[in-house]
Amino acid sequence: MTHTLHRRGSEESLSKDYVVLVMSSRGFNVDGAAPKLKKALEIMWKYGIVNVGDMKQGSIKCWGNDYERIQANITDRAVLQGVYSDLDKVKAVAQELKNADLGLSVVISGLFDNVWHTIKKVGLLPHTVAVSMETWGRTDLLPPPKIMEIMTMCGHAMISRDLVEDTIEKIRTCQMSPEQGSERLAHCCVCGIFNTERCAGLLREAAGFKPDDKPFYLTKRG
């Protein structure tokens, strides 16, 4: 599955969006992987993660899930994934995962230049890459780019265009804050790679507000 690939947006926006995925490999190191995956989640959690989840259990934003519950129910075949807004945090996670020597596969999705520079600082090199070649075919059917930036943060397409547009409208009419809107959308992304911090900024912009317009949602505008 290429669900952490094909995230859209400007380089400036993507410079605050990095997904870290940790998993075992079927037929090679699945058996007995659960304790190692638990350790990996512990490391990921330590460094100010924006969102996190397990492909088998859902994210911390779903159904009252939380870190403790996900941690307690990790199995050998868990696929852990979390998203960070800060490269320094990614560096710290990569360093500690390297030191922990868990033998699990780790994939970091984000701007190649930034990710590679960061992992090299901790003595690692890119092993294999997946390059997005964007979308081909009937691209006339796609939503506008600003909507796509938000939607593509859930690679499984669980965040609908209608929900994004409805959320933007609710923010524009001061029925919810961008942060609340972002959390509303994050409920739908089951795997935990939806970056709520980045999304809040995108929603604010899409609703026509500036970053210093707060707490605008408490006062209805004409």
Partner: peptide, 25 residues
């Protein structure tokens, strides 16, 4: 592959996935 993609004038994004090679065996 990037050289081939660029030769064909196909799009490619500056962001993507990097496996950082920590897995064993």
């Amino acid at each position: 592959a990037i050289e081939i993609i660029e030769k064909l004038r196909l799009p490619h994004r500056p962001n993507g996935k990097t496996c950082i090679g920590l897995g064993r065996p």
